[in-house]
Measured scan of single mutants.
Amino acid sequence: MGFKLLSKLLVYLTASIMAIASPLAFSVDSSGEYPTVSEIPVGEVRLYQIADGVWSHIATQSFDGAVYPSNGLIVRDGDELLLIDTAWGAKNTAALLAEIEKQIGLPVTRAVSTHFHDDRVGGVDVLRAAGVATYASPSTRRLAEVEGNEIPTHSLEGLSSSGDAVRFGPVELFYPGAAHSTDNLIVYVPSASVLYGGCAIYELSRTSAGNVADADLAEWPTSIERIQQHYPEAQFVIPGHGLPGGLDLLKHTTNVVKAHTNRSVVE
């Protein structure tokens, strides 16, 4: 069995187990497998329904001669939608809004960016022009300005110390501490036991640490421990890039980060 097929099978099995364990909360999309990078042309966006009122959005972007996937989250909030992270750029984010209108038909009224990198804030200006209120932590807003990236308009308070959590509509926002970046936030959907790890969490097929220019490698494993301790009931975990899975993604990420750190020390 090929690795790609095995990865998709694991996603399907995880979703099936969740649907059985929580039949009222989960209505997993039966329309197909989780979209992969090879299936999404740059400039297009796919939506994948995880649970009743919960979707991931998947886009792709060219970077350094390669094409990478990027995940975000959409959560229903009454007759409105909360968006977590842009679709990595203005063109993708405009396509995301169009796809949401086509498939869901509810307005996106608020959006949260989970850290300051372009795959999370690139497209904020498109959201703002569409009347979406954009939010991020003060740290993310400051770092985005320093980096020359787009800056969300509103500040999220109460997320300055490791372990801080605040309720934001249908989700809980959690600051686990520094990891992929010093400002990275985690998003949890309690009604569906869905954990969105953003770039602080890796997919299972990833074996290298990737972009760690703004990471705190020493603190990252401790931050992941905080996530595990705060959300032990999480059933569906979405990484910032690639295929979702279960809580095993947290341990896998820790292993990859520690291996990278150990290699760096040896070198």
Score class of each variant (00 low, 15 high):
263 R>K: 15
75 V>N: 02
28 V>Y: 11
18 M>R: 11
236 F>Q: 11
22 S>M: 12
141 R>P: 04
33 E>R: 12
75 V>C: 03
50 I>R: 03
150 E>R: 01
190 P>S: 10
88 W>Q: 00
65 G>H: 10
124 V>Q: 03
45 V>F: 04
205 S>G: 09
222 T>V: 12
216 D>R: 08
237 V>A: 04
122 G>Y: 08
212 V>R: 07
31 S>W: 11
213 A>P: 10
80 E>V: 08
42 V>R: 09
134 T>S: 06
49 Q>G: 11
259 A>D: 11
95 A>N: 13
112 V>D: 06
184 N>A: 01
57 H>N: 05
40 I>R: 06
141 R>E: 02
69 P>F: 08
11 V>A: 11
79 D>P: 09
111 A>H: 05
159 L>M: 06
47 L>D: 02
171 V>G: 02
15 A>Y: 11
144 A>K: 04
52 D>Q: 10
17 I>W: 12
76 R>N: 05
12 Y>N: 12
267 E>C: 04
215 A>Y: 05
246 G>Y: 04
119 D>Q: 01
92 N>W: 04
164 D>T: 11
222 T>W: 11
126 V>H: 08
220 W>F: 05
175 Y>I: 00
142 R>V: 13
249 L>P: 00
125 D>Q: 10
146 V>S: 14
21 A>C: 15
63 F>C: 05
125 D>G: 11
207 T>P: 10
107 P>K: 14
263 R>S: 13
261 T>E: 13
232 P>N: 08
29 D>A: 12
164 D>P: 05
239 P>Q: 03
79 D>H: 09
30 S>E: 12
32 G>H: 10
250 L>M: 06
113 S>I: 06
35 P>L: 07
71 N>D: 04
220 W>S: 02
11 V>S: 13
62 S>K: 09
202 Y>L: 15
255 N>F: 09
36 T>S: 12
47 L>T: 06
109 T>R: 13
22 S>H: 10
144 A>H: 04
14 T>R: 09
184 N>D: 05
170 P>E: 06
176 P>W: 02
100 I>K: 00
173 L>P: 08
122 G>D: 13
19 A>E: 15
150 E>L: 04
80 E>T: 09
68 Y>K: 03
214 D>W: 06
201 I>Y: 02
87 A>H: 00
8 K>F: 08
103 Q>F: 13
64 D>M: 12
165 A>E: 12
62 S>T: 07
12 Y>V: 10
245 G>A: 05
159 L>C: 03
265 V>F: 09
153 T>F: 11
7 S>F: 10
11 V>H: 15
177 G>C: 04
150 E>Q: 08
9 L>P: 14
170 P>H: 01
38 S>E: 11
157 E>M: 13
263 R>G: 14
244 P>S: 05
86 T>G: 01
168 F>G: 02
119 D>G: 04
221 P>Y: 06
140 T>M: 00
66 A>H: 15
13 L>G: 07
162 S>R: 14
